Amino acid sequence: MLEGYRISTKLEEMDLSFIHGFLTESPWAKGISREAVEEAIKHSLCFAVFTDDGEQIGFGRAISDYTTFAFLGDGFIKEEHRGTGLSKWVMQEMTNHPKLQGVRRSLIATVEAHGLYEKFGFKTIAKPEYLIEKWNWQAYKQS
């Protein structure tokens, strides 16, 4: 817990406009529609970070069957609140969440935050040849 902040998993507390606004400008979800964000949130275990005065300043979500697989994604902290330990706290809350205990494999895709995730047991994939992907990199491109 960090003084001045709180984390919630209650969907009704989450500011969908804030989340969509951040994601649609992010490198990994640029152009994503609000409807797609709403659908993704509805089917995920979400973690929202708030200031004590109720402003949402961060987000992360786990996509999981709660048994065999979890993908942690869409994690972010609003720029002016970075460097305070909030990312570590959110990761701690996510990896320690009761629904995610015992999951056989968890994955994260990241370009720049390897150091953060390694603190929570994530490592470069030992056998990358075991994983293949189908990636529609233009899925959010709006015509």
Rank of each mutant, 00 (worst) to 15 (best):
A48G: 15
E118S: 12
K134S: 11
S17W: 03
E12G: 07
A109H: 03
H114L: 07
S143F: 09
R61W: 14
D15P: 05
D65K: 01
F69C: 04
A113H: 07
T51K: 03
C46E: 01
L11H: 08
A40V: 12
K42T: 11
V37G: 01
I125M: 13
K42F: 15
E112K: 06
V90Y: 05
A113E: 10
L107T: 09
E118R: 12
A40Y: 06
G31L: 05
T51H: 06
Y117Q: 06
E55T: 13
G115H: 14
E13P: 02
G31P: 03
D53H: 11
F47W: 06
G121C: 08
K127W: 08
F69T: 06
W137S: 11
E25C: 06
P98E: 11
E55S: 08
S26M: 05
I7Q: 01
A70G: 04
H114K: 09
P98G: 06
F120M: 02
F59N: 03
D65M: 03
C46D: 03
Y140S: 03
T67C: 14
E79L: 08
E13R: 05
F120T: 03
I108R: 00
L11A: 08
L23H: 04
Q138T: 13
V37D: 02
Q142N: 12
L45E: 01
R34G: 09
T95V: 15
A29G: 03
L45Y: 07
L72V: 15
S17I: 09
